[in-house]
Amino acid sequence: MKEDYYKILGIDKSADAAEIKKAYRKMALKYHPDKNPDDKEAEAMFKKAAEAYEILSNPDKKARYDQYGHAAFDGAGGFGGGGMNMDDIFSQFGDIFGGAFGGGGFSGFGGGFSGGGQRRTKGSNLRIRVKLNLDEIANGVEKKLKVKRKVTAPGTTYKTCPTCNGSGQITRITNTILGRMQTASPCTTCGGSGQIIDSKSAGSDADGLIFKEETVSVKIPAGVVDGMQLKVTGKGNDAPGSNGIPGDLLVVIQEESHPTLKREGDNLHYDLYVSLPDAILGATKDIDTVTGKVRIKIEPGVQSGKILRLRGKGISSINSYGKGDLLVHVNVWTPKTLSKKQRDFFEEMRTDEHFEPKPDHNDKSFFEKVKDMFS
């Protein structure tokens, strides 16, 4: 099970944006790869802190995390999904480090960012909405999505940027009253990639990229919620240059309404209307579930408002904690018009003792039923 993001950063849930940023910067500086070369444990902590900050620093993601926990981002989360990447961390949060490491530089772990080395740029992300019906959400589904993304055009070649000599950064030394100060910033000629266009194909843009439609297969786990975002690593736009990293495809879940079932977390609700004779005499009824219709028995004398719980007939938990339940709400339908014969019958029964309300301790009030439903 994933570690709590608040515990990773050592803060309370009430922490504001400034406290979250301060806590992350403290951890990032402590476990920064330049301070802990070849230390796998420090690398893991550095990645954990970045993942926690990526979620908690975003108000929308923080709200979803506070409500659903890690379930809101399973298969999608911050840097989750396709695994953490040092280039992701430094491209998004390099400004956190200020000048502590030569302008936010990074020198280890496979040639990512470097104070004096080449910077690997990342392409832009793409976002697509996917509509899912309740059956697909309950059981999980694999979707084939057509995505139009930017890729490097055939025949496009790049060469070393003459301005930064391939480092991706410009170093400046200035004299101050405190002495000589060195600062580094991304090269404005190549955008920090260390490369510029040498030759490009006809029809490509200024970065040598063209649009290409691809079919991407996305496995959507059971139990996703409306607004949840899944990440498909490397299926966004290509980055300019031969050493760039493609962006990601962000798949946003949109839940379609069901004609008879209402969702509440992992539970489902179904309104069952029964006639007065069925309520008195008992009956069997077919009702909808996410796995097809099931037949249930209505006991004689059922009361309107009774809730029948069908265990395990709800939505699968995205955390693999099992399935929710289907709650069937019994509503006794009272006819609005009667024939003379029917009216005469009920007039006769008005004073019959069998029709007198006689609730006992098993007949719970509305508020007790609501309490039981949420317990």
Rank of each mutant, 00 (worst) to 15 (best):
T188P: 15
G104S: 04
I245K: 07
D372T: 04
D363W: 05
P240Y: 01
G247K: 03
N319M: 13
P154Y: 14
G105A: 11
S114G: 15
A42I: 09
G292F: 05
G208N: 02
I196Y: 00
L209D: 00
N165D: 11
G102L: 09
F109K: 11
G108I: 13
Y68M: 06
D205M: 01
Y68E: 09
S14T: 14
P277Q: 08
P37D: 13
F79T: 01
D87E: 13
K235A: 10
Y270Q: 00
P335S: 10
G244Y: 08
R120G: 09
G78C: 08
R120L: 13
G69S: 05
G155Q: 06
G234P: 06
G123H: 05
E347G: 02
G102R: 01
D271Y: 05
L268N: 02
K48Y: 08
G83N: 04
G301S: 04
Q67D: 13
L276C: 06
D34C: 06
S316N: 01
S257A: 13
F113R: 06
E54S: 13
Q342Y: 09
K131D: 14
M27E: 06
G191W: 12
E142K: 00
G192I: 05
K285A: 03
L338T: 03
E3M: 12
M228N: 13
L276G: 05
A17M: 10
L132A: 06
V252G: 01
G305T: 03
D286Y: 02
V302R: 03
T157R: 02
K231D: 03
G282I: 00
A283E: 14
N362F: 03
K21T: 14
M181R: 15
W333S: 09
R295M: 11
G194M: 05
N125P: 00
D87W: 00
E41I: 12
G110Y: 10
K13R: 15
G103L: 10
I220R: 01
A71T: 13
E54I: 01
T174V: 15
K35T: 02
K369Q: 09
F211E: 05
Q229A: 10
A15F: 05
D60S: 09
L276M: 13
E43V: 10
M373D: 00
A63W: 03
G265K: 08
S275Y: 05
A138L: 07
Q182W: 07
V328A: 02
G301V: 07
Y53R: 08
T233N: 02
G81M: 03
T291Y: 03
H361A: 07
M349Q: 15
I170N: 12
S14H: 01
G155C: 12
E353S: 15
D372Y: 06
A76N: 07
L9P: 06
G247P: 11
T163A: 07
D12P: 05
V370A: 11
H354N: 14
G123V: 05
Y270I: 03
Y321K: 15
I128Y: 05
K26R: 13
R263H: 04
I177V: 14
K61F: 09
A206D: 11
G78N: 08
F367L: 04
V370Q: 12
D39T: 04
G104F: 02
S201G: 14
I177T: 15
K293Y: 06
K40H: 14
P359L: 00
C164N: 05
Y68R: 07
N165V: 00
A239N: 03
Y31A: 03
A76F: 09
L338W: 11
K131V: 02
V251T: 04
